[in-house]
Design a protein around this nucleic acid. Structure first.
Lengths: 229, 229
DNA sequence: CAGCCTTCTTAGCGGGTTCTTAGGAACGCC
DNA sequence: GGCGTTCCTAAGAACCCGCTAAGAAGGCTG
């Protein structure tokens, strides 16, 4: 997956700088704006993949910015930041079309987790295009073609479905039962050893490269993601 | 927003045809299935945006279909149709993970209204991102990932469950008995030495940082919180 | 109909995980 | 400060989980 671009909008210099640094550290391509007007302009010009938006700002506040975007038909995911923790604020934020909501003070790690959760959800939503990518792994569902590092990877039908389902749920841990149901159409409590065999198969094909994308979560299941140390 | 896709599942031909026609007329992209098995297959293959699901069907009934989907981790919104109007049915339907409930006979307009309401609600609700945080400790349950100060912390299944339960009860002191019950599924008066061993394990991993988050309450049990001295 | 690809089962190995035990350390009460 | 109680830790044994190899069974294609 190509690098995700995030726009951070906050009028407080210190906080904004910190957010930008933290997200950059996580590997995102981060830009920032100090106020609502600038933010709207930047969204129009660079259409980021996600916006982290402070609610309390002078002039045009976060809610207003989001509302303007939505009214203009822009569906870029928004995560609101606010000092307040009232339920009514949260409701308002979500009604306006926000995707998540974080009350100050919060741990930077929590912001990162929520950013990932929102991007994960957006990525796997069914109306996104019919090609999935993760790092240098590309699956073109229309052409029914899978490539890793530019080289074509030949997969049997079941292998293909397994990779596809894992890819559609990037970052999410899937149990053997879930895989049995969604890839094989079996009952969740059927013998899961087929799954293990097939994970072995696709590992030898898809993960014959670095970085490894298929990970075992012992006692739980499997997941696909780029492992950040 | 692209056209929304709805799957109608009903074994009665006449009703099903009518529903399909009505929803198509409203501008939805409608497909249909005559029974539960077919429905499950179609959901897997085409992942619709919403499912209208008759409860009373031979073989695999509506509740069973919904349960199978939810167990497989599929969160597609479901509206149940039923001939019965009992409160217990409604409760069962919602418990299983249905989003709305309609008793026959109903006006087509009512179905349309509920379809729109459910879609609107789903669009604006954020991921109920199951993440818990305490200071710089973050647990992302979907990704099954735990980080402290941004670094990933590897936990065995039992360790993970223990941290999760402590984190879900932040600030509350949990007795060894409670932990035995909720993390191990043992009786509360079983030998609590396992708990001590595991608290030791997770201390070395998640409390290898400052501030310490896991605290012993002598004579009572353990708790997780940021210690303000 | 023969050969290949694919699917799935089985069995064994290796290593992570769980749990027990026991000794020593820390705490708190008197 | 002494003493009993509670808690911590190290170490090891048994266990279970997941990986892999190998082969049987089924299906598709030439």
């Amino acid at each position: 997956m190509s690098q995700r671009r995030i726009l951070v909008v906050d009028d407080e210099d210190n906080l904004r700088t910190m957010l930008v640094a933290a997200l950059k550290y996580e590997g995102y391509d981060v830009s920032f704006a100090p106020d609502g007007q600038t933010a709207l302009k930047m969204v129009r010009e660079s259409s980021p993949d996600l916006i982290v938006l402070d609610v309390m700002m002078p002039d045009l506040d976060g809610f207003a910015v989001c509302k303007r975007l939505r009214d203009a038909g822009n569906r870029t995911p928004v995560i609101f930041l606010t000092a307040r923790d009232s339920a009514s604020d949260k409701v308002q934020g979500l009604q306006i079309g926000g995707d998540d909501y974080l009350s100050k003070p919060f741990a930077l790690e929590e912001l990162v987790a929520r950013v990932e959760a929102v991007l994960r959800r957006v990525d796997s939503s069914p109306d996104s295009a019919e090609t999935w990518t993760l790092a240098d792994l590309v699956m073109d569902d229309v052409a029914h073609r899978v490539t890793r590092a530019g080289e074509e990877v030949h997969l049997s039908p079941t292998e293909y479905n397994l990779v596809k389902f894992l890819l559609q749920n990037t970052g999410r841990v899937l149990s053997r039962g879930q895989l049995l149901q969604n890839v094989w159409g079996y009952a969740p409590d059927d013998d899961p050893s087929v799954v293990e065999t097939y994970v072995g198969y696709i590992r030898r094909k898809v993960d014959a490269y670095e970085p490894k994308l298929i990970h075992t979560v012992r006692g739980v299941g499997y997941t696909m993601r780029v492992q950040q140390a």
